[in-house]
């Protein structure tokens, strides 16, 4: 059995992405969807780190920097998104995305 390589990280990242994706697509609760989005973002972060480690020029920190940006943005995003969810709740009295279909018109 060889040491843990890039494919293993990618598999974990893909699994994480897939789980996040499924959460986003299937959950009807807006907060749930938000959680799914966090999973997807972290899957991306995992990939950044992995590629930085295995593929990029040694000594480069580009992957880590990106990850940190993503984490920061995710925090900001979560804050804004939760605010939006609150606004939706105030408008529709629900946070079920099936019922908030105003775009349809």
């Amino acid at each position: 059995m060889s040491s843990i390589g890039l494919p293993h990280f990618l598999i974990v990242g893909a699994a994480l992405f897939a789980l996040g994706m499924v959460t986003v697509v299937t959950r009807r609760n807006a907060v749930g969807i938000l959680m799914g989005v966090e999973l997807i973002l972290n899957a991306a972060n995992l990939n950044f780190i992995a590629f930085n480690h295995f593929v990029a020029t040694p000594g480069s920190l580009a992957g880590q920097v990106f990850s940190i940006f993503v984490i920061v943005l995710a925090a900001a995003e979560a804050a804004i998104a939760l605010a939006i969810v609150l606004a939706i709740y105030q408008t529709f009295h629900t946070i079920d995305v099936q019922d908030t279909d105003l775009l349809r018109q």
């Binding site: 994706m21 986003v24 697509v25 995305v97 908030t100 775009l103 349809r104």
Partner: peptide
């Protein structure tokens, strides 16, 4: 196709 359901759009994108 225009359901207004964001999830169905995501389905489509996926």
């Amino acid at each position: 196709l225009q359901t207004g359901h964001i999830q169905s759009y995501l389905f489509g994108a996926l």
